[in-house]
Amino acid sequence: MELHLAWLYDDLLELYGDRGNVTVLRERCAKRGITLHVHQYSVGDQFDLTKMDMIFIGGGSDREQNIIYEDLLARREDFVMAIENNAVVLLICGGYQMLGQYYKDLDGKMIPGLGIFDYYTESSRDRMVGYIGIDCHIDGHNFQLVGFENHGGKTQNVATPLGSVFAGHGNNGTDGQEGVLYKNVFGTYLHGPLLPRNPELADLFIEKMMRRYEATYVPVALDDSLELGAKQQVIRELKAQI
């Protein structure tokens, strides 16, 4: 079996070890006999998002997000079609913000988003930095996700969040919610990177990609003692803070 992942703008948006997410997906696919082809696409490249099983956009600095915006806008229709066709989409920090209505920076300047979702983000002076843990209930799977957040933007008006915060800040530090989940779109402020410490989520992505082809696919369980050990180290630290 072969699956296709588009890793967008990896040459521009690759703060915080984003490559770790891609490595983890590729390896966990390989252990199930699946070849995950990773396509690294950037500004000006020719590519077709609607042919992808998964799309990943990581985080970057403001300068780099500005370079990307025009390119992404030109692909908005393809992006919407991929989402409606149940492609898995993982958006972290900047990628998450860009799919909303707008991003307002500290000087009050409005940077429009793709407007695919109703949420919007406004920058604030008190950066939300530190480890974060959230509870998720997705398609009958219940698990905790941990990661590191570092964002000045506060995201509001998320209709369907990814999870509820048990330690840390989340979307805006006030409503106790984190990220967005719509169909197979996962937007979040958790990096760290996200998937190495959260093998449950990596496997959920693999399940969702495979179910585009096999309606009952369930990935076989793997030995995740190291991954869960890393998650437990973070959870212990988070519980000590609460």
Binding site: Y16, G17, R19, G20, T23, V129, N150, G192
Partner: peptide, 9 residues
């Protein structure tokens, strides 16, 4: 640095 994500780079 609190964030260990640098090891992935």
């Amino acid at each position: 640095g609190q964030d260990t994500s640098w090891i992935w780079d």
